[in-house]
Write a protein that binds this DNA or RNA. Sequence first.
DNA 1: AACACGGGGCA
DNA 2: TGCCCAGTGTT
Length: 362
Amino acid sequence: MMKKKANTLLFSHKISEWYLNNKRDLPWRASPTPYKIWLSEVILQQTRISQGLSYYHSFIDKYPSVNDLANAEEEEVLKLWQGLGYYSRARNMLEGAKQIIQTHNGKIPDNYHELLRIKGIGEYTAAAIASIAYNQTVAAVDGNVSRVMARYFGISEAINTTPGKKSIKKKADIVISSKDPGTHNQAVMELGALVCKAQNPDCLHCPLSSECFAFNKQLTNSLPHKIRKTNKRERYFYYFIINDKKYVVLFKRTKNDIWTNMYDFPCIEKAHPLTIKELSDDGDWQTMFHDAKVTIEKVSKEHLHILTHQLIHAFFLHIEIDNLNDLPPSFLIAKKQEAEGLPIPKLIENYINSTELLKVEF
DNA sequence: AACACGGGGCA
DNA sequence: TGCCCAGTGTT
């Protein structure tokens, strides 16, 4: 291993001391176990603590151990994840739990390379679990760490490119403390979250400012550098709502798209907006309903659903249909009460709540 | 190496 | 609006 310079040891010492005095009181820090660390890391991927916290509690309550999770139904897990986004995290973690039961005798692997083989555990999460739960000396690099390294060391390469990530990782591996790598990793992340923030970093209260490249050169606003990509797809969803008194017709989404394995309504998607007349003249939806006799009762206003990479224009067409039995078998005819228990995307949840759609009529 | 994958919060 | 958030899997 490379010999460390004195100032890198200073980095770890100062930041760990700062951490002990400033760390937040988080539920998985009270009595950490590998499972709690794993769950927290997965929930917090691309997600702020404030947003993930209630989900963490629900999960620990419902699935207190890897074994409990491994025995769960995917729909149940997705329902618990509903509203948090990036649902592949939930599906992958369930698969990972099964993997651990089947091939690791129910014990979460205790080292970086074995952890990496678990579904849903990538470089960051493997490093986080290995260091925090098992005291392995491996740097966990997330968005916070990238920012702290880029500013402190003055790394100008874009942190979302392969060379940039390599540079960040190299520095993170140099400054990590082998004494208490878990505390060190959490300390860097906590500093990034509370002090070395993306906007308005609080350099006056930073324990590292005196040696920080960006602070000394007044470059905190331009570091880290990032290549931004502007890919926002616009999609037009025309949902068909069969408004029966007792039943609601749902469609289970398939893979290779958003909301895999979750439920929404039968839908015609277009790349461009259509008037209702154009839609009505278009044969697609008749085909979808197997030429069942359908009449449109009411059309909702446009509902915009804004995602990171997509802008979804959703319209909800309430329809009447002569006989529910005419519907193709790919549709799920669910009792309204049962539908409540199914995992649905936020867009659908919002619409259902705003219209009291699942209220049973008498 | 680039892209897909949710949803929310902040300036 | 644009950017960011304790990233991973697929193409």
